[in-house]
């Protein structure tokens, strides 16, 4: 398929939603493993947290948070489209989802 045909809001909303979903699904086992380290005692979790202070890791963490926010926003869009009675403003949901995700990403970046 041609990008000229795909270049509309709904397609981008879908793509972000799908790619973020895949990334999150792949990230989760790692996330759970890291937290499970606490079972070995506080020191193991602490040493993992120290490792994760590296800039590259911090950047990846921020990306994951952004992806989570994006996937949530996109998911709320799908739930709205599928369960609410159709209204014309539903076409604007993709843009709204994008805006909210970026806001959350910013909030996390500022908190770091």
């Amino acid at each position: 398929m041609d990008w000229r045909a795909r270049n509309q809001a709904g397609y981008w909303a879908f793509l972000v939603h799908r790619v973020s979903g895949i990334a999150l699904a792949l990230f989760l086992p790692l996330h759970f493993w890291a937290l499970g380290q606490a079972l070995e005692g506080e020191a193991r979790l602490e040493s993992f947290l120290r490792w994760s202070e590296q800039p590259l890791v911090k950047a990846s963490e921020w990306t994951i948070v952004l992806l989570l926010a994006a996937h949530l926003a996109g998911g709320l869009r799908v739930l709205a489209l599928e369960f609410l009675p159709w209204r014309d403003w539903h076409k604007g949901l993709a843009a709204l989802a994008a805006a909210v995700s970026i806001a959350v990403g910013l909030a996390f970046a500022l908190a770091l």
Partner: peptide
């Protein structure tokens, strides 16, 4: 998805709160 919508909102809020000023184990 509906359950996760609530869980993720709480999780994101908690993360942002907890992360301010760094965190130790």
């Amino acid at each position: 998805a509906a359950v996760l919508a609530v869980c993720v909102l709480v999780h994101l809020a908690t993360l942002i709160y907890a992360v301010r000023g760094g965190l130790s184990a």
